[in-house]
C-alpha cells in the first residue's frame, strides 16, 4: 500500500495532467453546450502545457542566465543548477496555438448561434433534422 502511495505521490505532476486531460476530454464528449465543449478543449490543451512545463522542473534550480559575481568577476552559477528552458519555450508556441484555436472555435460558435439561435447541440440537431 505504501508503495502505491509513494508511487502516486512521487509522480504527482503526471497524475495532475492526466486528470486534467480526462476532464477536458469528458467535457468535449459529454457536454451538450458548445461553449462548454470549447472550454473542455482548452482544458485539454492546457493539461499538455502543464505536462511540458512540469518535466523541466528542478529542485532549487535557477534561471539559465549568466551571473557574474561583482567582486571576483567570475561566473558563479553552475550549469547543473539550470532549469531546462526548452520545454518552456516550446510551450510558448503551444499557448499561441491554443489561443488561436480558441479564437477560431468561438468565432464559429458565433456563426452557429446566428444560424440556429442556440448553442445547445441537441436543439441544433433537432433543427437540422426538421429541414
Amino acid at each position: 500500500m505504501e508503495d502505491v502511495i509513494s508511487f502516486v505521490i512521487s509522480k504527482y505532476n503526471y497524475w495532475c495532467y492526466i486528470v486534467l486531460l480526462m476532464i477536458g476530454l469528458y467535457a468535449m464528449i459529454v457536454k451538450n453546450n458548445l461553449v462548454k465543449k470549447i472550454i473542455g478543449m482548452n482544458i485539454f490543451q492546457t493539461a499538455i502545457i502543464l505536462f511540458y512545463v512540469s518535466i523541466s522542473v528542478k529542485k532549487e534550480g535557477t534561471l539559465p542566465t549568466i551571473i557574474i559575481d561583482p567582486v571576483t568577476g567570475t561566473h558563479t552559477a553552475r550549469a547543473a543548477d539550470y532549469i531546462n528552458p526548452l520545454p518552456h519555450v516550446l510551450m510558448l508556441t503551444a499557448i499561441v496555438v491554443s489561443v488561436a484555436t480558441l479564437g477560431i472555435a468561438l468565432a464559429l460558435a458565433i456563426k452557429i448561434y446566428k444560424e440556429y439561435d442556440t448553442l445547445e447541440e441537441d436543439e441544433i440537431f433537432a433543427q437540422i433534422r426538421k429541414k
Binding site: 476530454l25 468535449m28 458548445l34 465543449k37 478543449m41 485539454f44 490543451q45 499538455i48 505536462f51 503551444a94 484555436t101 477560431i104 472555435a105 464559429l108 460558435a109 456563426k111 452557429i112 444560424e115 441544433i124 437540422i128
Partner: peptide, 22 residues
C-alpha cells in the same frame, strides 16, 4: 451547416494534434 461541421473538426483535430504533441 459548415460552421457546425468545422467546429466538430476543431474538437477532433485538436485532440489529434495534442496526442501528437504528448
Amino acid at each position: 451547416r459548415a460552421p457546425l461541421a468545422s467546429l466538430n473538426y476543431i474538437f477532433l483535430g485538436t485532440i489529434g494534434a495534442c496526442f501528437y504533441l504528448l
